[in-house]
Amino acid sequence: MSAKQITTFAKWEVKAGKLGEVLALLAKLAPPSRNEPGSLSYTVYQSNADPNVIVLLEVYTDETALADHRSSAHFQQIVIQQIVPLLENREVVLTTELALDDI
C-alpha cells in the first residue's frame, strides 16, 4: 500500500424528503470519523445549487487509514446500512495530490 495521503471526494444525491434524516446521521458519523487515528480531515458540504447534494471531503494519512475508516463499525452501521438507502446516487472519487512542480 502507498504511504501517500489519500483524499476522498464523495458526492451524495439525497432522495427527496430524506435530507433531514441524512444530515442527522452525518452529525452522528462525523465525530468518530474525525477521531480515527489516520483521519486528517473530514468536512461535509452542501451544494448551493441543490440542497439535496452533499459533498464530503475526507483526507487520510494513507490507503490503510482509508481502509480502516471504511471497515469501521460507525461507517458500516451509519453509511452503509442507514445512509446509502436514502440516496438517489453516490459517487466516490479517491485522489492523490499531484506534485505539479515535479512534472
Rank of each mutant, 00 (worst) to 15 (best):
D102L: 07
V55Q: 09
A3E: 08
E36K: 15
M1V: 02
A30F: 05
K18D: 00
Y60Q: 10
L100E: 10
R34P: 12
H69N: 02
Y45E: 06
L19T: 01
E58F: 09
N52K: 14
A65D: 07
V93T: 14
V55Y: 10
A49L: 14
N52P: 12
V55C: 04
L86F: 00
L100N: 09
Q81T: 08
K11V: 03
G20I: 00
A3F: 10
L86R: 00
T7K: 15
S72K: 12
R90C: 01
S41F: 13
N48A: 12
Q77G: 02
D62Y: 10
L100K: 12
G20D: 15
A30D: 11
Q46H: 11
S47T: 09
L25M: 07
I6L: 14
V53Q: 14
A3L: 13
S39F: 07
G17Q: 08
S71G: 11
M1A: 06
L40I: 13
Y45I: 01
A73R: 13
Q46F: 04
L57W: 12
L100S: 09
Y60L: 06
V53M: 12
A16C: 05
Y42F: 14
L40P: 13
A30T: 12
V53D: 04
A49Y: 15
A24F: 03
A65C: 06
K28D: 09
F9L: 14
K28E: 12
S2R: 08
V93A: 05
A30C: 11
E13A: 02
E21D: 07
P51T: 01
V93Q: 14
E91A: 09
S33Q: 07
G20A: 10
Q76F: 04
D62H: 08
E21N: 04
I83E: 01
T64W: 03
G38R: 10
R34E: 05
V44C: 09
P51E: 08
H74P: 05
A3Y: 08
M1Y: 08
G17C: 04
I83G: 03
V93I: 15
K28G: 02
P31C: 03
L100P: 10
V59S: 13
V84D: 01
D68P: 06
T43N: 14
T64H: 11
T64F: 06
S72H: 10
S71F: 12
N48E: 14
S41T: 05
R70Q: 11
G17A: 03
V53N: 12
E58K: 15
T95C: 15
F9A: 05
L86T: 00
T8S: 11
H74E: 07
N89Y: 10
L86K: 00
E63R: 15
K18T: 00
L19M: 03
T96F: 07
P37S: 09
E63D: 13
N35Y: 06
M1K: 09
E13L: 06
I83A: 02
G20F: 04
E97N: 13
L98Y: 05
L29H: 10
D68I: 07
A49V: 09
A67Y: 13
A99F: 04
F9C: 03
H74D: 07
I83M: 13
E36G: 05
L26R: 12
R34K: 15
G17N: 06
P37F: 04
L26S: 08
I83F: 07
K18F: 00
V14I: 08
P85K: 02
E36N: 11
L26M: 15
D101A: 00
V59W: 09
P31D: 01
Q82E: 11
A73M: 09
L26H: 11
A49R: 15
